[in-house]
Amino acid sequence: MSHIIKVSGLGKTYKSGFTALRDVNLDIQKGEIFALLGPNGAGKTTLISIICGISSPTSGQVTAHGFDIVKDYRLARSKIGLVPQELSTDAFESVWATVNFSRGLFGKAPNPEYIEQLLRQLSLWDKKNAQMRELSGGMKRRVMIAKALSHEPEILFLDEPTAGVDVELRRDMWEMVRGLREHGVTIILTTHYIEEAEEMADRIGVIRQGEILLVEEKQALMDKLGSKQLNLHLTSPLTEIPAALAEFNLQSELEGSFLRYSYDSRQNGDSVARLFRILSEQGIGIRDLNSSESSLEEIFVSLVHEETAK
């Protein structure tokens, strides 16, 4: 697969002496949606800022489209759009002016038809003459997206695009991001809503304290780290769990009328079948059962904690 962004050995130490990134290596594939997850202060914004040219790297190298972001910044940046985490806008500018400003800044000839289409798509057309200060937070966020897309970028960075955005708009945004991907735009997003990454991403990277902990296909990650639960509702409650079932480490709840078996889907083998066999040997009747998989969020939390414990 061809990578569109290549980050190698990237390090960033702020003037304060704080090291926000250490030896970050990351390849972004062309056309994918990449979700960068990590707790507050992990270095997500710092990483994005460096790739986009807002801060300078202390060490290492980044290329976009094969162009070095420092030496060939003009070529590297012209195809990149950024929606920053902070909503900073020119309060007195109109929506129309500010979006066209962005397009010009990125060296593109005016194209009012394209900008109109963009604003319509983001439901901003009826606000085109409004000043930025007259907009709600969610609207401002959309204007920021319009600005980032104004020069028809091939790579789009979304730094927490759905923070403070209502559910409906979030769904719309996901739609839009998928639409962009269909048009071949590569998208890198950060988010604290794991469901968002779960819903959208092709690949997921986890960063913590300036280090990339893992990069994995979303599905592979969920398969690999995903544990499953088998929930059993019993016909009659157990006062205690029979010794024959000890190996399964069952959790009992609801005064013994409910049993939960947690197992690793990687190495489940025939343990479920064995569990059922022993249950029937013990004469334990099952009224109902269901199973559940751990979500990305649980994976994420356990991963971050595991690493912290080290």
Partner: peptide, 14 residues
């Protein structure tokens, strides 16, 4: 001061 400088910094302008 307002933070909007990010756009100029991320743009292909010398």
């Amino acid at each position: 001061f307002s933070g909007t400088i990010y756009e100029v910094l991320s743009a292909p302008v010398s």
